[in-house]
């Protein structure tokens, strides 16, 4: 229970849109050919490049501070 909660908290601290897209990439990608799946992954990463959270993630990493994600 404590372990499950700790895992949930780690995932909750990640970028929420990125976590949703990662889940989609893994689960939908398995039904595709690898070539199609790699294109799908690329397209999702390109969409994520437009999010505020991703810019914040990169900024926070370079500033060596924890990021603040808002799901935007």
């Amino acid at each position: 229970m404590a372990e499950a909660e700790a895992l949930a908290e780690r995932i909750a601290a990640r970028g929420p849109i990125a976590v949703r897209y990662a889940k989609e990439a893994v689960s939908k990608g398995l039904d595709m050919t690898l070539e199609q799946a790699l294109r799908f992954e690329t397209d999702l990463t390109i969409i994520l490049q437009t999010t505020e959270d991703r810019a914040e993630g990169v900024r926070a990493f370079l500033d060596k501070r924890p990021p603040e994600f808002y799901g935007r």
Binding site: R14, A22, T45, L48, G57
Partner: peptide, 19 residues
């Protein structure tokens, strides 16, 4: 660790790791 930066793997990680 990409989701820590609000990003996802983009060199095939989401497809290659499950395979």
């Amino acid at each position: 660790p990409e989701v820590s930066l609000a990003y996802i793997p983009s060199a095939g990680g989401t497809q290659l790791l499950p395979r």
